[in-house]
Design a binder for these strands. Structure first.
Lengths: 184, 184
DNA sequence: AGGGTCATGTAACTAGTTACATGATTGA
DNA sequence: TCAATCATGTAACTAGTTACATGACCCT
């Protein structure tokens, strides 16, 4: 039975150097967050399931009196991750983008609110692009320099470029919306 | 209490001309599917909830011996939809894109499988772009011509352009990956 | 001393998918 | 006549979020 994306994410973060559940969550927040977020209440049960299936190995790793578990990916875990990476992609990527749904339904609003919506979306896209460029891209470069792992950096660039493209597209839409009515 | 996205989607599709639950699902499949899909088992309970709150009105609309309900958005429903459209957007748009997660973890694969992954993603992005351009964009134009509603068409163009940008980006990545090793 | 971070989990709830169940109408 | 589509729902399950609960370590 192959792993699912949530399990693959945990295995991947362990491979990338995180060892505790808490560290996995931190790693997600500073890398995959923009296209795949998670929470501690998903990570801990996932680690337990992976351990039960023999895909990770737990060892006690206390820090002073503070309990901590260190997890490591087993050979079977490595194989399961590769199997998932090679498995066929679901035909239709299911992703929900609330702002785009708003845009789709924007005919229900008066013109000035439509414009406000588009402006808000553009600002948000630009903000996210900036955040990825200043925080996540450099982290990806550092990771590659330190370990040779290149794809986290690749994905960071992809994210930044996609958000940048979206921001530009929305800026053009803004112009298109204001053009028709110079009196506004 | 404002509506949530799922309810807004149903209200919006009713406004766009769908009247039955089944028709709403069909409308979603031919318009918002790429950024917000739904299923009949979400639509029917949602209609019931909206009716109970007085945001839609149900009337019997049988077709021969086949039962059918026709729903219409009430004034309160229109107001609720506008209120949602004006409400603040959640700061971080949560969207899960499985192929990008695969790319992020692709360092676990040998080079040739990495390349296959990127090629598959590019082909998929190009296919979706094509599907939107040939099916959804024209539907948006037809809707605008018939009713004046412009944003479904705007969103269709945005979707097509974003997938097109993604496909180009992945093509460049493909070249980057093959460049290093002319022997492969 | 006290706030922020590290650390681990559970419980309750919300959202979404897949499978089940039924039956009429339409067009080839 | 037969398959595809129209039409409506429920049940069981899977996934994900938010709230709760606890406590140690680190830096100022």
């Amino acid at each position: 039975m192959p792993v699912r994306p949530g399990a693959a994410l945990v295995l991947g973060m362990l491979r990338l150097g995180a060892t505790s559940g808490y560290a996995i969550k931190k790693a997600v927040d500073s890398s995959t967050r923009f296209f795949w977020a998670t929470s501690l209440s998903q990570v801990y049960p996932e680690l337990a399931r992976l351990e039960e299936r023999g895909l990770v190995e737990r060892s006690a790793d206390p820090h002073g009196a503070r309990e901590r578990s260190a997890y490591a990916v087993t050979a079977a875990g490595e194989e399961a991750l590769r199997a998932w990476l090679r498995s066929p992609v679901r035909t239709i990527p299911q992703f929900r983008v609330e702002p785009v749904l708003r845009l789709f339904l924007a005919d229900a609003l008066p013109r000035e609110d439509q414009l406000a919506l588009v402006r808000g979306m553009r600002a948000q896209a630009a903000r996210v692009e900036e955040e990825i460029r200043t925080q996540i891209v450099p982290a990806g470069q550092a990771l590659e320099a330190a370990t040779g792992l290149r794809f986290p950096g690749v994905v960071a660039r992809l994210g930044a470029d996609l958000y940048g493209f979206g921001a530009q597209w929305l800026e053009a839409l803004e112009r298109e919306l204001t053009e028709g009515e110079p009196g506004a």
